[in-house]
Design a protein around this nucleic acid. Structure first.
Lengths: 344, 344
DNA sequence: CTGTTAGCGCATTCAC
DNA sequence: GTGAATGCGCTAACAG
């Protein structure tokens, strides 16, 4: 039960020399045959391939990597405990790399810089070809520095160092999109309830919101309400807001969670969404957005796209292409649901 | 901008022989010095260490692995797109392995068996020391077979093959815990609303619920309501249920999402949770459980613990310890909040 | 204590 | 076309 026979002659995993011996050729020839080099006689190649299959030979990628200096692996260094951001990014990266071509080491630093350093050295020691650093907020994070011998791309949280390559959601543009959509829905008395003001995401969205309002000759009703990213806050803030400004007809919510709270309160107050008050939020966290009454119109940050782009940048850097440093802002997309446009 | 000088003499990453040359010793001695072997003169060791630091030498783990046959990596093969289950499991596994000691390749097969096969070969080619397979439900999944030369542990979704090693949440016991808690809260008219009957998780929990009720001389009010794992269903089902059996005083919900829907409806009907109706659910998905009114009492599947155990089993198998095959059921834990016991 | 020798598994010259 | 030789970076016996 303990030993896993490899269907083969030996008890160990088969090596190329096993294949060569079995096919009656040299290791070199076996290598060429298996790697599809064209300077091998068709008959010989077939013999080698048959032998390889028979003993279920699996090339040892470690040995290959040792030779050509590339491992076909990248490290994904994250601090995003919950995995809410990192997973879509990881999926996007896997897409871009092509499944099975490149493998990803996922390391969770738990927000601890010591642990991050440990993981970083582990990754370098394993000779990853590149590193994607995923932060847990869009606030700039410390750079890993330039002493790292492989390309590094910062995703979600940009690096504070402008000479690094960073990708982050365009929250300002997101704020604009939210307001433009509300205006398109015929709203003009628009307020904003958002999360923790310590977060750049919260502040950036407000900036965008104000810009779009100004451009339409409007301005925010009341001041943006900052506190926490929770349903509780959404409930409390909207109660206060609607009491103070009963004629509000549109609310931009800093997150789907906040929007859920807002919906609860509006409902409790006997008003209707979207007829009386329309709500648009951020994140497009499906589990929240598609289960509310009504469903939430929300701005998706396109994280999977962000992951794909990150992978592409890594690739380019590996290939030697010049990658322009700096922060690249990845646009979001508006997903329209029932909280802004009534279903019929 | 393109070249990353390694602070060192050459333009390439430093190797052990660079260190040796610089310290004026042989490669072998340098190796011993760096690896803390005790047959090196203190002075020599210091010279080597200094040299290594100066050219920022990083040992090449690939070369090491090639020699000792172990890579210190494991593969996490998942089909859980959303990452809701896989992330806690991954974190548990990282814990158990010890951060930095072992690195994890995370591969998402997207529920596609072709892609899974690709990832599997990629992992084997990279010579991972073990593989953890994480399913997206607790329904048994196909085995990867026994031809695999490294230990495999199935987590969350057990393997259909009883000779494989599997770990899965104990949903039956979870069902019992839920009912026992409701009974302890003084409830006796208990109903159940749960998700898709195709899921073993849904069925297993019902079994546990019935067992615990029977043991207390009670039985379920009505029949278990199966449909989907959504808030919508929770709302609809509870409306129906409470109309049919107005004297219900406890509801076991198949998931936190369903519970959220139930809470909405109970509230809409002018009844109070937990005073009139107590609700307990499954998953303890914090974002849902701690943001409702009242917060949800929920059964946590202890996935992080499950991940830790999975890693431990892999470890044991690698070390040659005999690991008993079969399905191991990991107990959950009850997290009590306001939906069963009123806050004061 | 230190250095020499021999590989780990494979790909790549370059003669034959 | 094929195979012997060389080396990727490192460790593990052995000699000295």
């Amino acid at each position: 039960m303990a030993d896993n026979e490899t269907t083969a002659t030996s008890g160990r995993t088969a090596t190329l020399s096993d294949v060569a011996r079995m096919a009656g050729v040299s290791i070199a020839t076996a290598s060429k045959a298996i790697n599809g080099r064209d300077d091998v006689a068709p008959a010989t190649r077939q013999r080698v391939l048959d032998a390889a299959k028979k003993i279920s030979f699996t090339p040892n990628e470690l040995a290959r990597s040792l030779i050509n200096g590339r491992t076909g692996t990248v490290g994904l260094l994250t601090s995003d405990l919950e995995g809410r951001f990192v997973i879509p990014i990881l999926m996007g990266a896997e897409d871009a790399f092509g499944a099975g071509q490149v493998n990803v080491f996922l390391c969770d630093a738990r927000g601890d810089s010591i642990r991050e350093q440990h993981h970083l050295s582990a990754l370098l020691t394993r000779r990853v070809d590149g590193i994607i650093v995923v932060g847990r907020s869009t606030d700039p994070r410390p750079s890993l520095g330039h002493e790292i011998p492989v390309p590094v791309v910062y995703a979600y949280a940009p690096s504070v160092d402008p000479t690094d390559v960073s990708l982050t959601p365009d929250n300002r543009e997101g704020g604009r999109m939210a307001v433009e959509h509300l205006i398109a829905c015929g709203r003009s008395r628009i307020a904003m309830i958002t999360g923790d003001p310590e977060y750049a995401a919260a502040r950036d969205r407000v900036v965008g919101v104000r810009e779009a309002l100004a451009q339409a000759g409007l301005s925010l009703v009341g001041t943006p309400m900052f506190s926490e990213w929770s349903e509780h806050w959404g409930r409390d803030a909207s109660a206060l807001l609607l009491r103070q400004y009963p004629d509000i007809d549109g609310i931009v919510c800093g997150s789907d969670q906040i929007a859920r709270g807002v919906l609860d309160t509006v409902r409790d107050l006997g008003r209707s969404v979207p007829a009386d008050v329309a709500a648009v939020s951020f994140d497009n966290w499906e589990i929240l957005a598609t289960n509310s009454r009504p469903e939430l119109t929300s701005i998706d940050a396109n994280l999977q796209q962000l992951g794909r782009t990150a992978a592409t940048r890594i690739f380019e850097a590996i290939e030697g292409t010049e990658v322009t440093p700096g922060v690249e802002y990845v646009p979001g997309r508006l997903v329209i649901r029932g909280s802004t446009i009534a279903r019929r």
